[in-house]
Nucleic acid binder design. Structure first.
Length: 921
RNA sequence: GGACUAUUAGCUCAGCUGGUUAGAGCGCUGUGUUGAUAACGCAGAGGUCCCAGGUCCGAGUCCUGGAUGGUCCA
């Protein structure tokens, strides 16, 4: 038998390295097979509810690190709540309608025009479900627990029905109205396009400069004055209803030599325009600011019945043209915005195929928009208003599929008017708790400033707008009818709308005064997907009996102030007058370590599932814990490497605790707090404080603060001090000595409690630890988180110990000096002569500290003095091969002459039959 | 251009109501151990606190302006 074997070195099956990529999936499967999620909730049946409502990711594409951060953060919170006295279900969701899915179908070679809307929707439906399955698999691989078998999908009939009812309720309150708004319009495919379906190419266009005769100069300009404008889209002059100027720009009133007319152009552009128009020596008669010209009116170039209004807006530039822009609110976004502000009508003069309509005037009716340039010029010349024609080459939007140019064109759209309940929303925002707190200001300002919500989309894959039209074209927006449609959707899904006629969708025997012949049509547009997810408080939280409305918390990226946080509170306040959430957590975005966006071309993409398969999901999770996610965060291979170092530190420290409680039976060997050794009392109190801080920080969702606390605790309190000192007791002492059991009690307590605290963050590792503990629950996750305990005099205890730690720093420095002088190697070779102040003496005595042991030196003498001093010499005597300390009494025991007296006694006690001859080095 | 936000050691982060030589962990360097060993201990070197003004006896911390980055709008 070796001397080493007389020690209690401890063993554990918990390996130093986790082989995480291999073991994690097995564990996840086990959780699923064992219904761990359900079991936990079952334990919490009668507890207070805590609802984190999942914001639905879009069901398209692989998950990225941002998704991982989001889902892991949620899982941490949900798991934590479930372990601290709450019933916290987690229902994951997906956003499954919308344009990107339609685009994917197109990319895959399907042609929307060659099939019915219903068939197209079936393809989209199947595609979405496949994406959901893929993403679900990847989310589960992150260790996230939830109701994966029964997630919420915005395409589910019950969700669609709830959404339609939300719409109905808003309609019932009169918040839904129809208006015109310009969109990208492709005449070649006869449809509206989204930004993503537009590509830009160079195009040569004809630009025109012409004059507008002043009608009412408001005392600033007289009737013989002309405002000079330019346009690159001559056909839109048919719908011109105003002229926009820049409020702070200087405009000059000029009279060219030999002319009686006066013209207004931007001062900065006078020279180039004078040259362009052939004006000779233009005389400047006056200068105005744009704002001075506000609300002056001019005549339409050829339609005397139309008066145009001069308006001010910031989109006007002095790059080119005249500084005055002809404005047709139906033909451009800027035009629309300024037109709305000034209350202009939105007149449309072009049909869906790009041909001018009767509203453009009889001369134009039936002509293709791009063919009317000569006619426009002719009319301008006839009116004496034409000034110049130029060809310009510019970047112009094209239909990505037909490769034909597109135009802006106002089409009928459905809107939610915000104004009637804006104040109510703002009041509700004040009652929501935001993390971080500036979220409140941000959401508040957004709601305060936002315009009405355009909810129609000229698309196919979405929830239909449940609106009918009577024979005379009157839209029928009726809550009762909408509820009827909702019932149909609940039963058949919303594709039903496209498979049936208006008549079939209406209740039997429905009549309307606007349809004397009983004929009806239905709206073909669908709802904005933000209305889908924006109704989730109803479609999920209200729909499912075990969830609550309003939810306790929403957690998403800060972009959702414009998105989901926004749409949810609008619909919720509109219908019920309350915010759908009590608190909101906003997170930043993920960039690489240089602050750059992740992109394929930069090669800096960190895919969560790659990391999971190479390093382990635990590393991703610990990364999430380590970052301040309330701001933008960074991730890279190097950062993850650093995180995995931290992981190893945590893992190894826990492993040490497990190994050294191998022979400890918590039921039989536990030592009560009051009976513990001084150092163990300190450790107990210190860890108890750790638990208190932990819960406080969790309450603020400060994960990164917890991470620091954890690493500091593990590195400093445990590894560098307590466990280091502990070795001389746990290894050396008699197996059942009270000192050793006292320490093991603390070891075991920390292993159990720290494992529990880690479970929300590192669930795989926690469960692996749990298998090596002696606790009754089958899973760490089925246990309850530890609580702060009242310990007698703990605060003073911790304060007093600070005297020792300061003293220890000093000793460590002196020992290091001695080491450098090769006076000693390890601490055990040292003997210390220390001078302590009276205060130190008093505190150390009071705490009953064995300073020699705590400093791990062989010998120590202390004297009292004015100031603290430490002197290091080499220890005297010989080394005891068992505890490796120097002793002056080696050989004192005749039975084991190689040992000191103390070690000989221990061996005799623990191994009564052993003789010295049986021992070897 | 607007709303909100960030910028402290190589990395991840602390620095409360302004007050002595700006901190932690990791990493790095050196070193000790070899009974936590692809582990553990000890020590050390790293910072013009984004820049420029200002207030103050005194500013990383307050004010003003600017630079750079981010999200969402326009």
């Amino acid at each position: 038998m070796k001397i080493k074997d007389t020690l209690h070195l401890g063993h554990t099956n918990f390996p130093m390295r986790g082989s995480l990529p291999k073991t994690e999936p097995t564990r996840e499967k086990q959780w699923e097979d064992d219904h761990l999620y359900e079991k936990r909730l079952d334990l919490n049946k009668n507890k207070a509810h805590f609802n984190l409502h999942d914001g639905p990711p879009y069901a398209n594409g692989n998950i990225h690190i941002g998704h991982a951060m989001n889902k892991i953060s949620k899982d941490i919170i949900v798991r934590y709540k479930n372990m601290t006295g709450y019933n916290a279900p987690y229902v994951p969701g997906w956003d499954t309608h919308g344009l990107p899915i339609e685009q994917q179908l197109t990319k895959a070679g399907y042609d929307r025009k060659s099939m019915s809307k219903a068939d197209w929707r079936r393809l989209a439906h199947d595609y979405a479900l496949k994406q959901v399955e893929m993403q679900k698999r990847d989310f589960k691989r992150l260790g996230v627990l939830g109701e994966w078998d029964n997630p919420y999908l915005t395409l589910n009939p019950e969700f669609e029905a709830a959404q339609v009812r939300v719409f109905g309720a808003m309609a019932g309150k009169g918040y839904i109205y129809r208006g015109l708004k310009p969109v990208y319009w492709s005449w070649s495919s006869e449809s509206a396009l989204a930004e993503a379906e537009v590509e830009y190419h160079d195009l040569e266009s004809t630009s025109l400069f012409y004059a507008n005769r002043v009608k009412d100069g408001k005392g600033v300009l007289d009737n013989d004055t002309y405002l000079v404008v330019w346009t690159t889209t001559p056909f839109t002059i048919t719908a011109s209803r105003g002229i926009t100027v820049g409020p702070n720009f200087d405009y000059v009133l000029v009279k060219p030599k030999g002319q009686t007319s006066k013209y207004v152009v931007a001062k900065a552009l006078l020279e180039e325009n004078a040259a362009r128009f052939g004006w000779k020596e233009p005389e400047v008669l006056a200068t105005y600011k744009g704002i001075d010209l506000d609300k002056i009116t001019v005549e339409h170039p050829w339609d005397k019945n139309i008066t145009e209004l001069v308006m001010n807006a910031d989109h006007v530039t002095l790059d080119s043209g005249t500084g005055l822009v002809h404005t047709a609110p139906g033909f451009g976004e800027d035009d629309y915005n300024v037109g709305m502000k000034y209350g202009l009508p939105i007149d449309m003069t072009v049909d869906s195929k790009g041909y001018l309509m009767k509203s453009a005037g009889s001369d134009f009716e039936g002509k293709f928009y791009d063919d009317v340039v000569p006619l426009v010029i002719e009319k301008l010349k006839k009116a004496g208003l034409w000034l110049a024609t130029e060809k310009i080459k510019h970047s112009y939007p094209f239909d990505w599929r037909t490769k034909k140019p597109i135009i802006w064109r106002a089409v009928p759209q459905w809107f939610v008017s915000i104004e009637p309940f804006r104040k109510e929303i703002l009041d509700q925002i004040k009652d929501v708790k935001f993390y971080p707190d500036w979220g409140e200001v941000r959401l508040y300002n957004m709601i305060k400033d936002r315009g009405d919500w355009v909810i129609s989309r000229q698309r196919v894959w979405g929830v239909p707008l449940p609106i009918f039209y009577a024979e005379d074209g009157t839209p029928i927006v009726d809550e009762k009818l909408i509820d009827h449609v909702a019932d149909l959707f609940a039963k058949h899904g919303s594709t039903y709308w496209f498979e049936h006629t208006a008549k079939e969708l209406l209740p039997d025997g429905y009549t309307n005064e606007h349809s004397p012949n009983g004929k009806f049509t239905k709206e073909e547009d669908i709802m904005d997907v933000w209305f889908d997810s924006g109704s989730s408080w109803s479609g999920v939280m209200q729909e499912r009996s075990y969830l609550d409305y309003p939810a306790d918390v929403y957690l998403e990226g800060a972009d959702q102030f414009r998105g989901w946080f926004n749409s949810n509170i609008i619909t919720s306040v509109a219908v019920n007058g309350i915010a759908p959430y009590k608190s909101v957590i906003a997170q930043g975005f993920v960039f690489d370590d240089k602050g750059q966006k992740m992109s394929k071309s930069l090669g800096n993409i960190i895919s969560p599932n790659d990391v999971a398969n190479q390093m382990g999901t635990e590393i991703v999770r610990l990364w999430v814990m380590s970052i301040d996610s309330s701001q933008d965060v960074h991730v890279s291979k190097d950062i993850l490497k650093q995180v995995s170092e931290s992981y190893r530190k945590i893992r190894n420290t826990m492993r040490f605790l497990l190994a050294n409680t191998e022979d400890f039976d918590p039921k039989k060997n536990s030592v009560a707090f009051s009976d513990r050794e001084p150092i163990d009392k300190w450790m107990t109190a210190d860890f108890n404080q750790f638990i208190k801080d932990w819960h406080e920080k969790m309450g603020r969702y400060d994960f990164y603060d917890l991470f620091k606390q954890l690493i500091n605790f593990v590195s400093n309190d445990l590894s560098a001090f307590y466990l280091d000192v502990a070795k001389d007791i746990v290894y050396i002492d008699e197996a059942d000595s009270s000192e050793r059991r006292s320490m093991q009690t603390v070891f075991y307590e920390i292993s159990v409690k720290l494992t529990k605290l880690l479970t929300p963050f590192l669930p795989h590792t926690a469960e692996e630890l749990w298998e090596n503990l002696k606790e009754p629950e089958a899973y760490a996750y089925l246990s309850e988180a530890p609580r702060f305990e009242k310990l007698a005099d703990a605060d003073n205890l911790l304060k007093d110990w600070d005297y020792f730690f300061k003293f220890r720093d000093l000793v460590n420095k002196e020992l290091e000096n001695a080491r450098e002088k090769t006076l000693i190697g390890k601490n055990a070779e040292a003997a210390l002569q220390v001078t302590l102040t009276e205060k130190q003496m008093e505190v150390f005595d009071h705490l009953q500290l064995d300073i020699r042991k705590l400093l791990m030196v062989s010998q120590l003498k202390e004297t009292k003095g004015q100031e603290t001093k430490v002197e290091v010499t080499h220890a005297s005597g010989q080394v005891d091969p068992r505890d490796r300390l120097y002793h002056d009494d080696i050989g004192a025991d005749t039975k084991f002459p190689m040992f000191s007296k103390k070690n000989a006694e221990i061996v005799e006690h623990d191994f009564p039959d052993l003789t010295s001859e049986q021992l070897e080095d």
